[in-house]
């Protein structure tokens, strides 16, 4: 492992340098007590001691609403694509959210790359921040191999040690960033690297009762052995608010709509959710997944079946716990995997 040390007193300077050439998106407190990842206007704004952000990074790579192109029909069709070419550094990102990016990359950078997503993704640098203890009661990344420390998927991974941030390098981009700021960094000592591994083991022990039985559910789902009654019961609890999908770091459904104003138009992409009744509904009124139970089954299959894990490189739940926070009822990932395991939803 290549690692450096960034002394605490030099962190602000490091961040200030990042801000000179990129939009730095970091956890920051909004209003009183809520935390969002968002562009910071000064290094002091970064909330290093936060729990988890209300939302993952998704909004910055796949906005809830984005303009794809503008067109006009005056004197023949004219089309002009919009592309976000901002350089971004995602700083202080929780490991679960970093892992989520990998799954999104498989979706949007796979066989048919999405230029909108990829244009942003290729211009981003990801600096993960490890969790020295479970940040929230609802966290279950330990069940998903997505935290509290990572071994891959980041450009740099920072761990807060008494003497400063241990900066692990995970990619060429991460290494280049370190090189460019070598004057602020020192080589990491062996005992500092050892401390990181000790802290990782200790952190894992702080995760509470909130378990998600992903592996068991995965086996049953992939073999089509889930009792259909479980989906019926989950459907009775789900209120179709869409919250779990909007908050999920790896949910990627969208819809495209054209908005016309005279002869001028805009094509926009908006977040949508496969759980919504009308998501798959066809113009004829036919709906291939007419019942909520069908839609729930499809969503969980997409999230945690072997079939999809193979395509994505891993199963798609990263244990960030946001579906637990955001669920309007009791049909989030841990509730459903528990239901699958026991054959009945509580």
């Amino acid at each position: 492992m290549t690692a450096r040390m960034l002394p605490h007193e030099r962190i602000d300077e490091f961040v200030a340098r990042l801000m000179q050439s990129a939009e730095v998106v970091a956890p920051r407190r909004v209003e009183v007590a809520d935390v969002f990842y968002g562009p910071v206007s000064s290094p002091g704004e970064v909330a290093w001691d936060y729990g988890t952000a209300i939302e993952p990074l998704k909004r910055f790579l796949l906005p809830q609403r984005e303009t794809m192109l503008r067109f006009s029909t005056d004197g023949g069709l004219k089309v002009e694509a919009e592309c976000d070419e901002r350089e971004r550094v995602f700083l202080g990102v929780r490991c679960c959210d970093v892992t989520g990016l990998g799954v999104m990359d498989a979706m949007y950078g796979g066989d048919i790359p999405d230029p909108y997503y990829m244009s942003r993704r290729e211009r981003s640098t990801v600096i993960a921040l490890t969790c020295l203890e479970a940040p929230e009661e609802t966290c279950f990344c330990v069940c998903c191999d997505a935290g509290p420390f990572l071994t891959e998927g980041y450009d740099q991974q920072w761990t807060s040690l008494p003497e400063g941030m241990l900066v692990e390098i995970g990619s060429e981009r991460g290494e280049a960033l370190a090189r460019a700021n070598e004057d602020l960094l020192a080589p990491a000592e062996l005992d500092q690297i050892a401390a990181r591994y000790r802290l990782a083991r200790e952190a894992e022990k702080t995760f509470g009762d909130f378990k998600s039985y992903i592996a068991g559910a995965m086996a049953k789902l992939s073999m089509n052995e889930v009792d259909p009654e479980v989906w019926e019961q989950a459907a009775m609890r789900c209120t179709e608010c869409g919250g779990c999908t909007y908050l999920c770091p790896t949910c990627s459904c969208f819809t495209v709509t054209d908005r016309m104003n005279g002869s001028e138009g805009v094509r926009e992409r908006h977040w949508d959710a496969c759980l919504n009744n009308c998501y798959a509904r066809e113009a004829s009124g036919h709906n291939p997944r007419p019942e909520r139970s069908d839609r729930l089954r499809a969503r969980f299959f997409h999230k945690i079946s072997h079939q999809w894990a193979e395509r994505n490189g891993r199963q798609a739940c990263v244990g960030c716990g946001r579906c637990v926070v955001g669920c309007m009822a009791w049909a989030h990932m841990p509730a459903v995997t528990e239901g699958i395991r026991r054959g009945v939803m509580t």
Partner: peptide
């Protein structure tokens, strides 16, 4: 360009319909 819930709000507590 978007909406999301407040976690600290006493009614929403991180949820929206």
């Amino acid at each position: 360009v978007g909406a999301s819930p407040s976690r600290s709000h006493p009614v929403a507590e991180g949820r929206l319909c």
